[in-house]
């Protein structure tokens, strides 16, 4: 099992799907953030597995770069969460709907 590329890919795809499901189903913005992190990790797993398969170091470097990108995103995302919580006093992403299409004007 651990000999097969496909099993790693399958694991990665399961994690990727879980991440996607988290984004579509959860209102809590923390968990939305964590879901994105999980998806990035799933992609990392694919990279590393392919690197082992091709016996190349390149994908490991790519995975490393993706981790760094995730860190950068984390900084912005987490500070945005703080702003949102201060502004709206809530973590519920469903109530953030000022921009909803209305009959009246909003610019």
């Amino acid at each position: 099992m651990a000999d097969l590329l496909l099993s790693y890919i399958a694991l990665a795809m399961i994690l990727f799907s879980i991440g996607f499901l988290g984004i579509i189903s959860r209102k809590n913005i923390f968990i939305v953030y964590m879901s994105i992190e999980l998806m990035l990790n799933a992609v990392n797993l694919i990279f590393v597995a392919l690197g082992r398969y091709n016996e190349s170091m390149e994908p490991q470097v790519m995975a490393m770069i993706i981790i760094a990108i995730a860190a950068a995103e984390a900084a912005v995302f987490l500070s945005l969460i703080v702003v949102l919580y201060r502004n709206k006093k809530s973590l519920n992403s469903d109530i953030f709907n000022v921009l909803k299409q209305k009959d009246t004007a909003n610019g």
């Binding site: 984004i23 709907n97 909803k100």
Partner: peptide
């Protein structure tokens, strides 16, 4: 079409899905 613009992030992600 406007009704689809619910300004709900989850719904948008769902439509992407």
């Amino acid at each position: 079409v406007a009704r689809l613009q619910s300004a709900n992030t989850r719904m948008y992600a769902f439509s992407m899905l």
